[in-house]
Write a protein that binds this DNA or RNA. Structure first.
Length: 279
DNA sequence: AATGCTACCTGGTCGC
DNA sequence: TGCGACCAGGTAGCAT
């Protein structure tokens, strides 16, 4: 579920709430995830103190003072809840409870597509999770020229290229549609057909859409909550995602004639776009 | 090498 | 009220 804005929001939420606290106790009720929680996780991190928080793509990295760091991914349905004191009652799919000197973290993930593992800080970028990670959308090195160069040899539709974490990281299925709408580019366009100007529009739109989402606290559908349990708001700001048949915000066209926002399936994932504005 | 299909897992919704 | 089909924000592994 969570894409870059949600992960950034969750990371900042934890950092603000827990900060540089010491981990007192780790209770793991289910170790089966995309990758399993290592058997010695409790022993390796109990008693350590958190020294920092990072987001890399859709991964949250928590640095510890013993040279290790946690690699945490929320998959499609993961949430991290925060509590000042031990929660009175736990919910279904509360798989991991972490007690710190500043409060509790509870990892809830019904589908268990996420993961929580540790690695040595030095080898973080050698892990299979990060060694092929693409550029961060807000990295200064990302510009029209960079993107054009990386799309030059790709025939895949631009929508699918935006979902490829090895090119630009952090974009998921909702924001891929929203970014292409903002950039006025059809999701069906072959990546290698985009002009430098169009690449510039994609870079600009990516930053604009993601930044807007972050400042709005991350979007929410179904099962996403900010760490403190409250809901985000960005869902109301989506222009095309899940709005099949509706009029897009910027269009002057008659729905009766155009049918409004269209839905199609690319690589098994839904894409939404305005065929009038996006070429 | 690149692409596309499937699987992983649970839960919500929709149509009958 | 029940049941099956289908859908969901991510990623990886496999076949082609």
């Amino acid at each position: 579920m969570p894409e870059l804005p949600e992960v950034e929001t969750v990371k900042n939420g934890i950092a603000g709430f827990i900060g540089q606290a010491q981990i007192l106790k780790v209770e793991i009720r289910n170790r089966q995830f995309r990758d399993n929680i290592p058997d010695d996780m409790e022993n390796r991190i109990t008693g350590t103190t958190i020294t920092g928080y990072r987001r890399i793509g859709k991964y949250i990295i928590i640095d510890l003072d013993n040279g290790l760091c946690l690699i945490w991914h929320l998959g499609m349905s993961g949430r991290i809840k925060t509590f000042k004191n031990r929660p009175e009652q736990t919910e279904k799919h509360d798989h991991v409870l972490i007690e710190t000197t500043a409060g509790w973290l509870v990892y809830n993930d019904p589908r268990r597509f996420g993961l929580l593992v540790y690695t040595s800080g030095e080898k973080l970028f050698e892990t299979k999770y990060l060694h092929n990670m693409g550029i961060d959308p807000f990295d200064n090195k990302l510009d029209a020229g960079w993107l054009a160069e990386h799309l030059r040899l790709k025939k895949t539709p631009i929508k699918e290229a935006l979902l490829n974490q090895n090119i630009i990281n952090g974009i998921g299925n909702i924001y891929a549609s929203e970014i292409l709408y903002a950039a006025r580019i059809s999701p069906l366009r072959a990546s290698d057909s985009l002009s430098l100007k169009e690449c510039a529009r994609i870079v600009e739109s990516t930053r604009k859409v993601l930044h807007k989402a972050i400042t709005n606290g991350g979007s929410t559908l179904r099962d996403y909550h900010k760490p403190d349990g409250s809901l985000g708001y960005f869902q109301y700001l989506h222009c095309v995602y899940n709005k099949t048949g509706q009029k897009c915000p910027d269009c002057k066209c008659e729905i009766a004639k155009t049918g409004g926002i269209k839905k199609l399936v690319q690589s098994g994932r839904s894409t939404f776009y305005c065929a009038t504005l996006q070429k």
